[in-house]
């Protein structure tokens, strides 16, 4: 699936044979927990009978992780997975936000603001519509936070460069 993911990100559609092979390898699976947000849409189209959720959602459903999210935290959502299942996830993240009392990387319309997901394209020399550093500055602007918690590993480096506070991955919440 890593090869297929790399192809999709580069704009290459997987061959039907590749998909058949993948389907047979995944025949007993009922749920995918997927870190790469851009893959969610494709996996739902290929496997409509299976559940596809993001890594952040899977971890936030664990009580020990949910309890460790605090009011002073800024939680940074992985935007591509969020937008691929927007109707359901607005409700899910709203309930997480209300329960923890934290802030989130969403706009007033509750759209998740993209950050580091475009970095790999830029590193490969492709143009990107989003400047990750600008997005991070905008998210942090006039916000007083004690800690930044990111869902996407790609966002960690960018936030660490620009944020004066501690930056951790959601799996490191304690």
């Amino acid at each position: 699936i890593s090869d297929i993911a790399a192809d999709i990100e580069a704009g290459v559609r997987p061959e039907p044979k590749q998909l058949e092979k993948l389907a047979s390898a995944m025949s007993g699976v009922t749920e995918f927990v997927v870190a790469e947000g851009f893959l969610h849409r494709y996996l739902r189209a290929w496997f409509p009978e299976k559940k596809v959720i993001g890594l952040g959602e899977a971890l936030l459903r664990l009580p020990e992780i949910a309890k460790a999210l605090k009011p002073g935290d800024l939680y940074v959502i992985e935007a591509r997975g969020y937008h691929s299942d927007y109707k359901r996830l607005v409700k899910f993240y709203d309930s997480v936000r209300l329960q923890a009392g934290c802030t989130m990387s969403t706009s007033l319309q509750r759209a998740a603001i993209p950050v580091g997901a475009t970095e790999p394209q830029k590193q490969r020399g492709c143009s990107s519509r989003v400047d990750s550093s600008e997005q991070v500055r905008w998210i942090l602007d006039r916000r007083k936070v004690d800690r930044v918690v990111v869902e996407s590993v790609e966002d960690m480096g960018i936030f660490k460069n620009l944020s004066p506070v501690n930056v951790i991955h959601v799996s490191e919440l304690r």
Partner: peptide, 27 residues
């Protein structure tokens, strides 16, 4: 049913985080 975790390249490259996630998801 069974669950499968697809970590992607960025998580795979970060060994410590990859192991932490695997431990949590196996609970």
């Amino acid at each position: 049913g069974s669950k499968v975790f697809l970590p992607g390249m960025a998580v795979r490259k970060n060994e410590q985080i990859f192991q932490g996630i695997t431990r949590l998801l196996e609970q």
